[in-house]
Write a protein that binds this DNA or RNA. Structure first.
Lengths: 207, 207
DNA sequence: GAAACTACATACCGCTTAGTACGTTGTAAA
DNA sequence: TTTACAACGTACTAAGCGGTATGTAGTTTC
């Protein structure tokens, strides 16, 4: 066992290998933190070795940067912004997304928090390169939220005098706050606090 | 230089040494994270050595636990709950506290986030001992907030049908969310989003 | 199909880490 | 003043870390 010679010819694909490393790194970093994970940990979760890793990324930091730009940033947008376009009233969409993606999720899926928020807490204050990319990802999310709120305003679901940029900031803020609290609490009541309070807040935005 | 013999008799005080270590550890962990700081880093910031450290704490983890129980937990309460008692209307107090402790703070003081939130993000998912203590600290904060909201209700500043436990959850949630966002943003506009939105939310709680 | 290059695999290195072993000095009791 | 112990200081270790040097096997080019 274990000494089965691999006689099959190994194919080589730079991009696929890169993606395999990024996928493995995402889960390891997501569950254990960037500083808590070693390069060896990551390659162990792939079919590759350290040589492949450093052929793709000059340093561990560069992997972290790629993780933010290529995985976490688009993932966050696909998860929280793209689905909103299906709803005629974006405010309803936001609440429904929260209900579906958080309220109906298993505690196990939630207890590692939000990938973007995790790295923001851990890496933004101690590394400039991380901070720049995390800021860009966060603003990308907030910008998307603002666009949807703009649409809500045009459709008459939000009053004209409302500062939608500020609302976008606040909505994202509550998301991050929720995920943060849940890590220590894993109490479903925290979800109700988020959902009901945000709903109550949204009421004040209606014409 | 550097070889000045220390001829003064060194005094010994177990409790004072413990406090010195805890104080130094707090700042190092606050600014660089628990996993990002070594025991050697911490003792270098004190007048003591590694021997003293391990005489006080069996492991590095035990120091972390003490940090939560003896420093961060009471600090959070003194900072966010105790001052509320001075205000007749706790809702006003909460907003004023935010304005004073966040709005008037220098960016430098804010960019390392919230000590409690930092450790929650970093350590709660990967260590049970941390999680238990962080949860206790967070609930201590929320409980205090709930007490103040109870007082607000009795004084007629909050409607009777409002679920104050949920409001307490939400208020703490927005705090943590704000600190989290600020780490990547250091944009003063994030503060306005917190302050104005929370104020707007509070309006819905009034009779 | 040989040459040239790319995409890895393997073995290793210097450094840092948490933790320990043991010596030494301050301190309180007798 | 001696005794006994507590409160450290110093030197060390084994393991893990990020990164590198070098060899080797697929792949492309001509």
């Amino acid at each position: 066992m274990g000494n089965s010679k691999n006689t099959t010819k190994k194919i080589r694909d730079l991009k696929k290998s890169r993606q395999e490393i990024l996928d493995a790194a995402f889960w390891e970093v997501f569950t254990r933190g960037f500083q808590g994970v070693s390069v060896d940990d990551i390659v162990k979760k792939t079919t590759l070795t350290k040589g492949a890793f450093y052929h793709q990324f000059p340093t561990k930091m560069d992997l972290g940067y790629a993780l933010v730009d290529e995985v976490i940033k688009p993932m966050t947008y696909r998860r929280w912004i793209d689905p909103l376009q299906k709803y005629e009233n974006p405010l309803e969409g936001i609440l429904l997304l929260i209900k579906n993606l958080i309220g109906k999720a298993k505690p196990q899926e939630l207890r590692y928090g939000c990938p973007l928020n995790n790295l923001m807490q851990e890496m933004a204050p101690i590394d400039k390169g991380f901070k720049e990319r995390l800021e860009a990802s966060l603003l990308y999310w907030i910008d998307g939220m603002e666009q949807e709120l703009k649409r809500a305003k045009k459709s008459g679901y939000v009053r004209d005098d409302v500062n939608i940029r500020q609302v976008a900031h606040f909505v994202v803020m509550t998301h991050e706050g929720f995920y943060g609290m849940l890590k220590a609490l894993d109490d479903p009541k925290a979800f109700n606090a988020l959902y009901d309070s945000l709903k109550r807040y949204f009421e004040t935005l209606k014409p």
